[in-house]
Amino acid sequence: MPIETWLTFLLGFMILGSIVALEIKDILSSIVAIGVVGLAVSLAFLFLQAPDLAVVQFLFEIFALIILVRAFIRKDFHVMERASSGRWIIGFTLIGLAAVFLLSLKVFRVLPPFGEPLMETSRYYLEHGAADTGAANIVAGIILDYRAYDTLGEVTVLLTAILGTLTVLRFRARDGKGGGR
């Protein structure tokens, strides 16, 4: 089968899985559904010849699931409350999004077709990457040499997110109203 068929199938599955995750009432099922979508993304990366991403996506997905399950799954609390806005808001949102979707179909036709990227910059990486950086993994060469500055930012993002999470979770609440110890 050509790769397009596989990817179309996977993307359809992801859309379906996302809708299920959004509409289902049970928290655990919802989180599991999103986990499955995440794994499908990882599989799609594999199809698209991005093993680096497949590995990282897979592992980070597991981690996100651990965080979500730890944060939200409780023995006495499984089913969500009425979790949507009113019917009118949903209707208008759906119409608006559908309009956006139809209007943007034309744009995708202007872009280079699937499977034929321009690669004006990337050609350089492929041709000179190994010689310039000494790394056989050209993606590693990009993230840690050509664009190492991005990665410095990325580490800082992670640091900030962790620092923020720990700040939010820190135990003493400040005015007694916030809960905690």
Binding site: R147, G153, G164, R174, G178
Partner: peptide, 24 residues
């Protein structure tokens, strides 16, 4: 893309600082 990354850095820091007081 670098602009995007640094924007996220600023946003994460801002989010944590908004919640810094620890009240609900």
């Amino acid at each position: 893309f670098n602009l995007f990354v640094f924007m996220e850095i600023a946003l994460f820091a801002a989010l944590a600082l908004v919640a810094f007081g620890g009240r609900a």
